[in-house]
Nucleic acid binder design. Sequence first.
DNA 1: CTGCTGATTGTTCCT
DNA 2: AGGAACAATCAGCAG
Length: 583
Amino acid sequence: MEVTRFRMPLKQTLRRSVIPPLAFLRRSPVAARALYKQQLPPPPLPHPPPPRFMSRTLDSMSYLNFDDHPRFDADEPMLFEFDSEFSSYPSYISPGYDSAGDFMDDIKPVIPPSPAYELSSSPSYSSDGLYNPEHIYRGSPLRLENLYLNNWSANDTDESSLPSPSSPIPIPSGPQSPSFVAFSDGSPFGPQSFSPQSFSPAAFAAALPLPGSHSPSSSFDDHYAVPNQQIDSVSPHETQTPAWAAQLWESTGSRHLRTSSSPRSIARHSPLSDSHRARRNSLSSGQQLFPSTSAPSVAPMGQNTVRSYSTRRAESFGASDDRDATVRRKKRIPGPEESEGPDKAHESPPQKSMLRPPKLAPSAWQLYFTDWIQRQQASSTRKLNVAQAAKEAGQEYASLSEDEKEPYKRRSQAAKDIRERELNAYMRTLTPEDIKRENAFRSAQRKAGKSRKSNIKDPNAPKKPLSAYFMFLQRIRANPELVREIFGDETETTKQSVLAAAKWRSMTDDERKPFLAQAEQEKMEYETARRLYEDGTVGYASSINFSILPGSPAFPVIKLESESESEGFATDDGPYHHVRSHS
DNA sequence: CTGCTGATTGTTCCT
DNA sequence: AGGAACAATCAGCAG
């Protein structure tokens, strides 16, 4: 098997242990969410931001450039090793597997957990097959996320001075700190730029809260979101999402996420600067945006933090400050067309897919089968080929009761949960060029009849808004009474569509009006978001809904029930009275 | 190679 | 393409 071994120099390791400044997170909301959602340690939050930190942070993005750094030295001592492939299941499904894992998509430091999370001798799966994170880290809550958290906690500290999870973990600082070695040459971002900071998972959660509502369709955010409850308990003083955070975490499902409770102080800024650059600059100068002393302050971004996609393209395979790109590069086996840069993306389609998404999580059956084979090997010397084994094990598996299958199902589900997150995170690391290349490959495969895989969509791109008719559909589905009225007893979705379409056609223009207006409104928002995204730099998630800005005409729109579970939908007052506060 | 199952596609509607 | 959710089919995994 071809194994490409990636090695991470110590310098990079150390660099990695530096907490990304919030400015970077704001500049790169996608990366920020990925970081946050993996529960990485929080960025330093100066209170108030030291001026020097603020000014220097702007130029210091290269500190996140873990790879392909000009200063990269292949002879540096290595702490990490990564394989581009792994021959077995990753840590979360394989008993006894190193919990640090070698999963490319989610770089985890291979460093023993801190004493606070004493490594148990038990594997991640107990003998009954149950997945049990507590078997890995004693004293940590039974949450898969804590695996990441704990690993990072361990990594971000010196092995010799490991703090407890509840106590803040000191960030090394000062010129003598090895963490800053990387900055000592060339980088304008000196060690002194950081004042001693501390963080804890709780502080991080408090620092970077998510908006209060979730889109039912936004699986990514559903899976990554830290429950508000948790955040609140951590930071009782912050009952509201700070403006910067609201902007930061505005999800791709923002259409659904916008709620009346979402802070919108960002709206104070003029929408008239049609260039995102101007907009961002106006944002960065807006210190008054973060007046709260309890709210985390943010180093403003400077002019030079804005780069267009074309710029990024140019840097795509060169020096880059894009952490996502870093991860991505590690996953890919470099192809010939990559060495020449992305200019060739439009040329002949790649011979093979460059994507290295996380592998599927094993099903309950696969886990059982793996165990079965192991048991066979342990208890019997007879040789079975896989076909025979599958046949025998398949019969046994079929005869298992639900209770007996349950442990396997739980293991499988745990693996699936993690895998889904990793996949989502992975997909978000893809650049438009990556996607173009992959789609060119897929198109060629389809043409050749070798695959029927459809093209992938850019998960970072703004989603097309729903048409008026689809909003009508949504509305019906959200309301049991309307469901009964229009769908009757029909449960088949395809037939429901027919019924809904008939109803739609029978409606008068007046009855359709609110849906059409809403669709028009969202279309405009989409166009704005799309332009910003295509211009580059702006992750869709951070796009601003200009329609909420003061002076915008109030736009009566339909409040879909899916957007607010707390608000019951009263059929008697009709849809037209529901006005979204943000619109 | 076998058995199983997760992932993907197609289905329906309209714009 | 965008929503829902189910059926059908593809694809991948175990050694």
